[in-house]
Design a protein around this nucleic acid. Structure first.
Lengths: 203, 203
DNA sequence: TAATTCAGCTTACATCTGTACGCTATTTTA
DNA sequence: TAAAATAGCGTACAGATGTAAGCTGAATTA
């Protein structure tokens, strides 16, 4: 077995151990280096061979979570292309993601309002990606002017993330309810934005 | 000086010390009993004369924060009555609150997605108050049917809270920008809801 | 093959935590 | 006034934490 390879493997096991620790009652700031090391099956001090800090590990986790979200968006777009409606498909895809990758989404949600400015900034970067891509998509499919498309996209992302937060702790049927409600709310936003476009055109 | 009176005074100083500790880098789960006691000027063990737990203190803080928010709403309603538009006045009032009671709002925001189920539940209760009152207000002023008014109110609260989260870390001019944007987004929602009402009536 | 690198380990230490126990001094009650 | 209650204190202890120092053995390089 290669040395590099082995090191990467250990690094992976640290990362995955950390994700497992990040359940509904733990945040990045509350997991300890020793605890992660224990879960990863290494000595506390060996942790330093891979990360300078617990914080460096935390940033890595946020990055990985963001990556997973972007992959999700690609998946959603593919499903939209094959019919079903933008809002329906996107929300359903999102909800599936949350259910399947519980801890990953929870991490983003928690650190978004967490105690570390670095983590908050990292999460904000990921959300900004979301906004930019949705704004572009909206412009290209509806022809809304940039300012309106952007406001719309931002509002939609916020509503979907809030719904995701609710869904995290919810039962399966509650999740369906949350999904249904947010879809209606997204339609409010879309229709309101369309109306704003019409008004803007008339002036 | 009364004994009860003195005890209340100490209790107050614990609560206020805790609020002061809850700045942008501390959450309820990261402040220690000893730290709070130190800041309040009492011995660590004296803390137990007032609260069973740090958690009991935490719930008290969430309650106080929720109370402050409800008072804010009353204030906002009074200002609406004296003209200026519902959305404008509400958002402005909210933003003023956030600026003046930084740590109070931050507490709610953080514990909303925090690691303690009890705290999350407590914050949700406060948000539900918000939703109920806004739904009632919407029905009585616009005549929207309950289901639509409720969806609208929920969406608006989520958007305003999200905007509040952004405003917390923002400069004064950024805050103005955030406020302006959320007002436009709220109009999207209101107009979209009105349209939904029209559609619902036509069926 | 001999020398170097380095992932992971063990040991060690200073610091912080929650909280149990019992004392004191003052207020309240009888 | 005598007895009871109690807010606050000091001491003490068993954990947990981050991380410094130095060792080991296997993989890599020369």
């Amino acid at each position: 077995m290669n040395r590099q390879e082995q090191k990467l493997r250990t690094r992976r096991s640290i990362i995955e151990a950390a994700f497992l620790l990040l359940d509904e009652q733990r945040s990045l700031s509350s997991i300890s280096l020793r605890e992660v090391a224990r879960a990863a099956g290494i000595a506390p001090t060996s942790f330093y061979r891979h990360f300078k800090d617990i914080d460096e590990l935390g940033l890595t986790l946020v990055d990985e979570a963001g990556l997973a979200l972007r992959q999700l968006m690609r998946q959603a777009r593919a499903r939209i292309a094959s019919g079903g409606g933008v809002i329906n498909t996107s929300v359903d895809t999102f909800m599936e993601f949350i259910t399947a990758n519980n801890n990953v989404f929870r991490l983003l949600l928690r650190e978004h309002t967490g105690t570390s400015m670095a983590f908050r900034a990292a999460v904000l970067r990921e959300i900004k990606h979301f906004n930019v891509e949705l704004t572009d998509y909206t412009i290209s499919t509806t022809g809304l002017p940039y300012n309106i498309a952007n406001l719309q996209a931002e509002a939609m992302v916020k509503l979907v993330f809030s719904a995701g937060a609710e869904a995290l702790d919810a039962s399966e049927e509650q999740k369906l309810n949350v999904a249904e409600r947010v879809k209606l709310q997204l339609r409010f936003v879309v229709n309101g934005a369309l109306q704003a476009k019409a008004e803007q055109a008339n002036s």
